[in-house]
Design a protein around this nucleic acid. Sequence first.
DNA 1: CTAACTTTCGACCAATGAGTCGAATATTAA
DNA 2: TTAATATTCGACTCATTGGTCGAAAGTTAG
Lengths: 200, 200
Amino acid sequence: MTISERKLQERKMRKELILKSAINVFKSKGLDGATMDEIAQNAGFGKATLYYYFKSKEEIFNSILLHGWNVIWESIEDDIVGDESPRRKFIKIIKNITELVNNDRPLYEFLFYAPQTLDKQTGTEPAWKEYQQKLYNTLLHLIQTGIEKKQFPQMEPRIVLKALGGVFHGMVFWGKDSGDITEEQIEEMLDNLLGRNKSE
Amino acid sequence: MTISERKLQERKMRKELILKSAINVFKSKGLDGATMDEIAQNAGFGKATLYYYFKSKEEIFNSILLHGWNVIWESIEDDIVGDESPRRKFIKIIKNITELVNNDRPLYEFLFYAPQTLDKQTGTEPAWKEYQQKLYNTLLHLIQTGIEKKQFPQMEPRIVLKALGGVFHGMVFWGKDSGDITEEQIEEMLDNLLGRNKSE
DNA sequence: CTAACTTTCGACCAATGAGTCGAATATTAA
DNA sequence: TTAATATTCGACTCATTGGTCGAAAGTTAG
């Protein structure tokens, strides 16, 4: 029993190794540009072995994104309930995501960068889009109510989100990788950008 | 003489037709995903004919980007001299670009979207990057001095630019395509987002 | 009308790369 | 030790696609 458990564990680790290698290759070459051979080599396997663990290149790709967005979503979920002000909730969410990102940069750099890269319609929408969309809608809604309460600039919510997205991206990925960003820093950043009409 | 001139004109038009078709295909499929056959078909030619007008797929791609960024750069150049305030200059630039975009949406949607899509290192940097970079640096510098004069939020210039880029993108491409945006609207938008510390 | 030139494209070539297969090699259980 | 099971991969197939070629069709000038 213990044996088969270790086996499972090892198998899982090998899958993760492949995924990790794939992220690197995808990041520099894109979905199309990446070759299974390269991913395999990167992971120290032969190409055929990848197909022992994954059904296709697309499955690898989708696994990565699904996992990433899913983790984010779950770390967020708790923040959106409760009766704090939208602005405060927003800050908590940013904080959470920042922590995640600092925990696995390659993954999230890829994650926040990849969506734009994609367009091929594979008929069925990949599962990860659902999470991505949920996150987007949540943030949008938060900002919307935040705007009503004058806690965000009086503009189209989508535009505010886009702007804040840009700020977030810059902060996290250009930050002096000195580790996590504190809530205070995020608060300060928002104050700077949005004016000092803090949480009510 | 007049004849050969018309010939030239026609040839030019055919090239532009191909370019236009290519934009559409590239936009939905990306550089890798797009096939020469599809571009050709889209333009009403056979694939081989494309090679009569262009040396390679990459040349088509680069032609598009070079032209786009170049046009933007030239429309901008005049705005950056003079002694107006950075904020005012910035507004004029945005205004100019907005007009261009409304004149040829497919091109600029592609243009503002494509850079992220690319990473293959083809050894030599494509010529269009120079213009893109020049534009970026110009805006960055503008914002930098604007920040010093307290006309922009007191943050990392790159981050401010990124945020404003997001706003711009949203405004232009989500705008109720009711045509051009006025300088007043841009001014108002900036006021909203940046606070009412207008041009000095 | 004809010779020169321009434009177009069907058919082809060669490279690439996703995905398969079966045989080999480990590993485990008994 | 051995039979079953899990893992790995070399060698292959096969479809796609960038790019080429040469022949045909269209144009133009004289």
